[in-house]
Amino acid sequence: MWIVPEREIANLMTRDVAFDAVETVFAAMASGEAYNFPVIREAIGHEDALYGFKGGFDRAGLTLGLKAGGYWPNNLARRGLINHQSTVFLFDPDTGMVRAMVGGNLLTALRTAAASSVSIKHLAREDAKVLGIAGAGHQAKYQLSAALEQRSFDKVIGWNYHPEMLPNIEKVAAEAGVPFEVVDLPGMAEADVIITITSAFSPSLMADHVSPGTHVACMGTDTKGKQEVDAALLVKAAVFTDEVAQSISIGEAQHAFGEGLIAESDVAQLGAVINGTHPGRGSADQITLFDGTGVGLQDLAVAASVVNLAIAQGVAIEVDF
């Protein structure tokens, strides 16, 4: 069995590798070559933590496994650890033997950013110039870095529940040489692409905050009850997701679907756009929305890539098991 510790991930996994892995597995999902297992996610009644498992099997890439982990909201304040903690386990699909154990914290951040970046590539207008970020927590900086590589943005605008956190993303924009401006939520109407990356249970981005032709990527924590955007926005938009079942049950589409405002058939797979079996954006004025629910296959895809890189570079640890 190979072990790739968390400390090695930053030197192995690049945004380009994460992007390619996620784009490829989305396409495999839409073609029926890969599928996710049912998600288990539970409040464990200790430290206010949420813990669960995501897994799946990609026949095309012969990748089988699961990610175990969750959210410990007291970690940062009490222990100096990030609140999201996870580990990925890969298995040989031919024998069932464990193949690898991989640190999943940075991989989760990179694959989540890669997912929204893939959606921008395939759904945002080519002439998009203003990028909006609603949220400024740990994940937001990864989202911004990845998004800036997909279009020639000439400005970033940002909003957060706690404005004192906005320098986190202003620094990323400055390092990329792109001007940054703080706005209120109605100011998001200036954006051509908006990424929401919050842990909200009530909407902040409303339908009238989004202009015609905008692409919105909803990337915040997915669980029962979560809601980052107004349900009416999903009625106005062409809605895409990584996995439809998750989108309408624990993702951003759950409220519009539950209220009968949209049907399951109104939510399309982003992988179908990648494969060319769905046309994607219908016009320059159409609002598109990607609901990134964070499927297990994303984690397995980036973990498999990092294991191969670690072996090639001689930093993977081999143990008998």
Results as ranks from 00 to 15, higher is better:
1 M>Y: 02
2 W>S: 00
6 E>Q: 08
6 E>P: 02
7 R>K: 09
8 E>M: 05
12 L>F: 01
16 D>H: 02
18 A>I: 07
19 F>W: 13
19 F>Q: 11
23 E>L: 06
24 T>Q: 13
28 A>R: 05
29 M>D: 12
31 S>Q: 09
32 G>N: 05
32 G>F: 08
37 F>I: 07
37 F>P: 05
40 I>C: 06
41 R>I: 04
41 R>L: 02
42 E>H: 11
46 H>F: 15
56 G>V: 07
63 T>P: 09
63 T>I: 10
64 L>R: 04
71 Y>I: 01
74 N>E: 14
75 N>E: 12
76 L>P: 06
77 A>N: 12
81 L>P: 14
82 I>A: 09
86 S>R: 01
93 P>M: 06
101 M>L: 10
106 L>E: 15
107 L>K: 04
108 T>N: 01
108 T>W: 04
110 L>R: 13
114 A>W: 05
117 S>I: 07
117 S>G: 11
120 I>L: 03
121 K>D: 15
123 L>A: 11
124 A>D: 02
125 R>E: 15
125 R>C: 11
128 A>P: 11
130 V>M: 06
131 L>Q: 10
133 I>H: 10
133 I>D: 06
138 H>R: 10
144 L>D: 13
144 L>E: 14
147 A>Q: 10
148 L>N: 13
152 S>T: 01
155 K>Y: 02
158 G>M: 06
159 W>I: 09
162 H>Y: 05
165 M>F: 13
167 P>R: 07
169 I>W: 01
171 K>Q: 15
172 V>E: 15
172 V>C: 02
174 A>Q: 14
174 A>P: 06
177 G>W: 00
187 G>R: 00
189 A>S: 14
192 D>Y: 10
200 A>P: 01
202 S>K: 03
209 H>W: 00
215 H>R: 08
216 V>S: 07
217 A>K: 01
219 M>G: 09
220 G>E: 06
224 K>T: 11
227 Q>D: 10
229 V>W: 11
231 A>G: 11
235 V>E: 15
240 F>W: 12
242 D>Q: 08
245 A>Q: 14
245 A>L: 03
246 Q>S: 11
249 S>E: 13
251 G>D: 13
252 E>C: 08
258 G>D: 05
261 L>W: 12
265 S>Y: 06
273 V>C: 09
283 S>E: 08
284 A>V: 03
284 A>D: 14
289 L>T: 12
291 D>H: 05
296 G>F: 04
296 G>K: 04
311 I>Q: 14
315 V>A: 04
315 V>W: 01
317 I>D: 00
321 F>P: 00
